[in-house]
Amino acid sequence: MKILLVEDDKALSARIQKLLENEGFRVDSAEKGSDADFLLSTESYDAMVLDLGLPDGSGVEWLQRWRRNQIEVVTLILTARDSWGDKAAGFNAGADDYVTKPFEPAELVFRLKALIRRAKGHAHPEIQIGELQLNTHTQQVYLAGLAIKLTAQELRLLSYLMHAAPAVVSRIELSEHVYDRDQEPDSNVIDVQISRLRKKLGGSYIVTERGHGYRVCEPEPASGKRVTDEE
């Protein structure tokens, strides 16, 4: 998942970035509203963590502007202000949730994950597709009730595909949202990792939609249109 973190305090920004990366998120950070504005116009994000007190205008004003410009990325407000009026103003500007500073790191991660999950249309913390289950809180994958051991990169890949399911995810989208900017892979690397995942999951949970990308779905009897790499 690709997160935009907008926080002007360098020390806090670095801490949050590290925290989120440890949780498997890919994080871009911006210190000012204008930097975030640029990133939002050029990249796509799964969620945004937005501090309300920015040096070049309040987070509420920036959020209003982005919403006006049809940038609908789900947003979690980070605020040092206790005033409920400020929080409500953030919500009315288009935020989806808030966390008050100082926050418990686990709470920030929990809320962010829940926000992304809900934004992708999953009401429950466990995303279940056939016998394949992803616990979004513990980041553990189960197949028919048995835990599957995945590498961090495999987990990110599968998690993104499962969140997006049943939609098709393109290779470009995967490379942007799952891989770090400095290690953006070529399509071959993605194919290799998908192949590994298929071996670990068994069955045909990950389907290749030729010319479009991948999607995760409940295995069905083979169909003429659907092709897997193993075919």
């Binding site: 806090l12 500073k101 926050f103």
Partner: peptide, 8 residues
């Protein structure tokens, strides 16, 4: 904010 840094 410093408290949040310490928390994080």
């Amino acid at each position: 904010t410093p408290l949040a840094v310490m928390r994080a």
